[in-house]
Design a protein around this nucleic acid. Structure first.
Length: 295
DNA sequence: TTCCAGGGGTAGA
DNA sequence: TCTACCCATGGA
């Protein structure tokens, strides 16, 4: 059992469900008592089942991490798990400025200031790029199916329960090849994008994970993300959000539908007109829009 | 059948 | 920078 103390304001369940990522394998949520579950492949190759629960205390929330593994977990593996959980749940991001903004705009956001905004992400950027590509030009139902097939076809199984699998590494994806993608995984034309990214990483032509800690201006970061085939403006801005940069909106069909109804009296606006709505929110535009839509 | 979904690549202007 | 056109897949 590992523990993490999180200072309030922090809403565990609401943050886990902040956007759709919780519905994508190998993550899941289980009510009663409220468990964030994930199958994780550690860098040592060991596959573990991770159950995270959150308990209210006085002025903090206590996260409890239960790790199920066949073999004992080493101290280094415990440290890796703690680091991954902190990253997935964004426990080291400072939201105080966003909460101050929310307090000044109660007409837009009702519950943000109580500790929302820490949208779930994956431990690796590779996983989040693949998942983001699987959200483009398709329905959410198909996105879930595509990601599920990637995990169940290529991911390492949990030894104690082989039907549960981890997200595959770039090397595992690269070694799969076109045939498996066309016959089993079926991402359509996205097959080639995911395979090329995986091969570029596996063969050392692209260091994707370094972008998580690169001190790049957001313009440069976006350029680096858009150099991935299959990542355009929408996907790049989604990935910037996942990296903790909320300066830009990821405008998609859902954004257009929502803003058309709320701000443009039923007439479809241009992307520039949509961006102008959230321009006043500076570095928090993405979250400003997101919680305008869902809060 | 046809359209299109939490778009993006490419060619041509 | 902007615009057609094309793209695999599967549900409506």
């Amino acid at each position: 059992m590992l523990e993490i103390t999180v200072a309030k304001p922090y809403l565990f369940k609401e943050n886990i469900h902040g956007h759709g990522w919780i519905a994508l394998a190998p993550c899941s949520w289980h009510d009663e008592p409220g468990v964030f579950r994930r199958v994780e492949r550690l860098s040592t190759g060991k596959v573990v089942l991770l159950d995270v629960t959150g308990a209210e205390t006085g002025d903090s929330v206590q996260l409890r991490l239960e790790v199920q593994a066949v073999q004992p977990i080493t101290n280094a593996e415990k440290a890796e798990i703690l680091q991954s959980v902190r990253f997935m749940l964004r426990l080291d991001e400072d939201f105080s400025a966003f909460y101050a903004l929310a307090a000044a705009h109660p007409e837009l956001w009702k519950s943000v200031g109580r500790g929302r905004g820490r949208l779930l992400r994956s431990p690796s950027l590779f996983e989040d790029v693949v998942k983001t590509i699987c959200t483009t030009n398709t329905t959410w139902a198909q996105t879930k199916q595509m990601v599920s097939r990637i995990v169940n076809t290529l991911g390492d199984p949990l030894p104690s329960s082989p039907n549960l699998r981890a997200f595959p590494t770039a090397t595992q994806v690269a070694e799969a090849g076109e045939g498996i993608f066309e016959k089993e995984i079926r991402l359509g034309y996205r097959n080639a994008y995911v395979l090329q990214l995986a091969r570029d990483i596996a063969e050392g032509r692209r260091d994707l994970e370094s972008l998580k800690t690169a001190a790049l201006p957001s313009k440069e970061l976006k350029k680096a993300l858009k150099s991935i085939k299959g990542v355009g403006d929408y996907a790049a801005n989604t990935l910037l959000m996942l990296l903790g940069n909320y300066e830009a909106l990821a405008i998609d069909s859902a954004t257009r539908e929502f803003t058309t109804k709320k701000y443009f009296n039923g007439t479809l606006p241009t992307d520039k007109e949509i961006a102008a709505i959230y321009e006043p929110f500076g570095n928090w535009k993405y979250l400003a829009y997101w919680f305008d839509m869902i809060d």
